Amino acid sequence: MDADMQDAGLPDEQVELAVEIFRMLADGTRIRLLWELRESECSVNQLAEAVGKPAPAVSQHLAKLRMARMVRTRREGNQVFYRVENDHVASLVRDAIHNAEHASDGIPAHHQSTGSTITAITGSGQRR
């Protein structure tokens, strides 16, 4: 890595793993899969139905996410269930979606459910 990265105090291995995580998040299907897995585990068939993709395609995406250590599996009989690896993965996806909501017009959906939180935080009706 270059001197700037070393000056930042980040080990090269961690930086490379972070880059790989962002590569995994650079795909709409994988974002949708991780969004579905934020709060509960699902089987491949459940995920395929939720994201509107064929099960074999979903399996391929899940295999990539598993190799990147973003999801883990649990086997029950002949069925495999997936879940996010940890809260950090769920937070990455949630934060990316919430940030994207701020780019659109109007009040982001994640602020609408909390009522007047925007006014309480900013002292006005402006988005942040």
Score class of each variant (00 low, 15 high):
Asn86His: 13
Thr73Gln: 12
Leu62Ser: 00
Lys53Glu: 02
Ala48Ser: 08
Gln46Ser: 09
Val51Ala: 00
Leu47Gln: 03
Leu62Gly: 00
Glu39Ile: 01
Glu41Gln: 08
Ser40Asn: 15
Phe81Ala: 02
Val93Ser: 01
Trp35His: 10
Ser91Ile: 08
Ala90Gly: 08
Pro54Lys: 13
Val58Pro: 02
Leu92Asn: 01
Glu36Gln: 12
Ala90Asn: 08
Asp95Phe: 14
Arg72Asp: 05
Ser59Glu: 05
Ala55Cys: 07
Ala48Asn: 07
Met67Asn: 14
Pro54Gln: 09
Asp95His: 10
Leu65His: 14
Val71Pro: 02
Ala96Ser: 09
Gln60Leu: 10
Leu33Ala: 04
Arg69His: 11
His61Pro: 06
Ser59Leu: 07
Asn99Arg: 12
Val58Ala: 01
His61Phe: 04
Arg38Gln: 15
Asp87Leu: 08
Pro108Asn: 00
Glu36Ala: 15
Leu34Trp: 07
Val71Ala: 02
Ala103Trp: 15
Glu85Gln: 08
Val71His: 08
Gly52Asp: 00
Leu65Met: 12
Gln79His: 02
Glu39Ala: 00
Thr73His: 07
Pro54Ser: 11
Ser43His: 06
Leu37Cys: 02
Gln60Thr: 00
Gly77Asp: 07
Arg69Met: 07
Phe81Tyr: 15
Val89Gln: 03
Ala57Thr: 14
His98Met: 14
Glu76Asn: 03
Ala68Val: 04
Gly77Tyr: 13
Ala55Val: 07
His98Trp: 12
Val71Asn: 02
Arg69Lys: 11
Asn86Lys: 06
Ala48Arg: 01
Leu47Gly: 01
Ala90Thr: 06
Glu85Thr: 07
Ser104Glu: 12
Met70Asn: 05
Asp87Tyr: 01
Pro108Leu: 04
Leu65Ile: 01
Glu85Asn: 05
Ser43Trp: 08
His102Glu: 09
Ala100Leu: 10
Glu41Lys: 13
Val58Cys: 08
Gln46His: 05
Thr73Met: 04
Leu33Trp: 09
Arg72Tyr: 10
Ile97Leu: 14
His102Lys: 13
Val89Asp: 01
Ser40Ala: 11
Gly77Ala: 11
Met70Leu: 10
Arg83Leu: 04
Leu47Thr: 03
Arg83Asn: 00
Arg66Asn: 03
Arg83Phe: 04
Asn45Asp: 11
Ala90Ile: 09
